[in-house]
Design a protein around this nucleic acid. Sequence first.
RNA 1: UCCGCAGUAGCUCAAUGGUGGAGCAUCCGGCUGUUAACCGGAGGGUUACAAGUUCGAGUCUUGUCUGCGGAGCCA
Length: 431
Amino acid sequence: MIRVSIENLDKHIGEEVKISGWLYNKRSSGKIRFLVVRDGSGLLQSVIVKGNVTDSVFDLFDTITQESSLSVFGKIKKEERAPGGFEMEVTNVEIIHLAKEYPITPKEHGVEFLMDHRHLWLRSSRQHAVLRVRHQIIKAIREFFDNRGFVLMDAPIFTPAACEGTSTLFETDYFDLGKAYLTQSGQLYGEAGAMAHGKVYVFGPTFRAEKSKTRRHLTEFWMVEPEVAFNDLNDNMELAEEFLEHIVLSVLKHRQPELKILERNTKFLETVKKPLPKITYDEAIEILKKKGIAFEWGNDLGGTDETVISEQFDRPVIVHRYPAQVKAFYMKRDPQNPKLALAMDVLAPEGYGEIIGGSQREDDYDTLINRLDEHKLPHAPFEWYLDLRRYGSVPHAGFGLGIERTVGWICGLDHVRETIPFPRMIYRLNP
RNA sequence: UCCGCAGUAGCUCAAUGGUGGAGCAUCCGGCUGUUAACCGGAGGGUUACAAGUUCGAGUCUUGUCUGCGGAGCCA
């Protein structure tokens, strides 16, 4: 008898098949009994009727525990009453491993308990759905760049020094070379890649040692960072909106069942089409002032400010041309107004905050030297970076998209900790 | 680092300063279409830890620990 996946059951109606998986739940009404089996691809309700199986198989129902691994054998039929629309008429059951008492019951649990059992929680339907959406998002990201001639370029995880000070970096000993730091961005390396390949994207984990304690922060998270030679800020914003449109469309197209499990209202996703609204930093401040929020020009937008601004739109909004003083040294100034940086952030709707941050980069050698001095940064660690301005410097731009915040937004979750299999936060290193 | 909230059965939560309970899970029994099935029964407690107030503390006070949310910082 062939073993099939639950997701492919529609191709096996009327056939005798074998399904191997784990017991998700069981119910009974005396002489008729229901085993709900999950195999990773879906859920199947299998029915054991007294008389259709041997007594020993019928009695297995009493001993089998939640999350025991097993194979069920029987004929597949369409069944409206069953979750998923298909059902198995069981002829035989084989237990592979009888599970001990499973800690996560089909009832409510608190976050702490679930996080302590994250390795098991991943089996629950909501978590299962989130990680499938995450996979789809990552797949769509790679598709988008691969189809546009970008080259994937991995940046190092160990870095010699900070690009914006060491206070937010994790430090580790590195043999005889002193200290190494875990990367907080692959961008500078991406710029080197763009000068070699024209269009690259860096996709990897990044680390922040900030003691952030909010629903938007992890100490270890994934970021994808495209960098394109000859692009200016407008090209950069255009790339970002086409990128977001592609990601969201891909999820809407391929992950409807998951979005349904997550009870995600897709109304806020269907609007994500190019062009996205674009406002300047000054216009963003006007919005805040109209809402009666005190705000001083020159400050960065805080979490609540971002929420207020994004609530004015039914789709992600791009805010560009921030005060240079709150942005990184490598961002190019606006020739029209040197107080502004050619920076842009994308704020997700519904208060999900900044999912993209990017800019056109400073491509002039002398200006970049001045920026390093203004930010009181040493020159030596950046000599290789300055070389990019010594040898055929060109205008270029790029951005970084935070995977977990994007997953949280698309799934409609209230905390990024559920968007990654094993989240790392200040007070959580296990499991 | 700062501010706020919380910690009671394996889990989720009740309990006016006066004998610590319920649902789920576990175990036993019942039920031929269940949907977090349902019905009956049983077992299960150092009320986070330490000290204090009181005739009497899960409840009030102080300290410690842990978790959650927020601020700052950021994606």
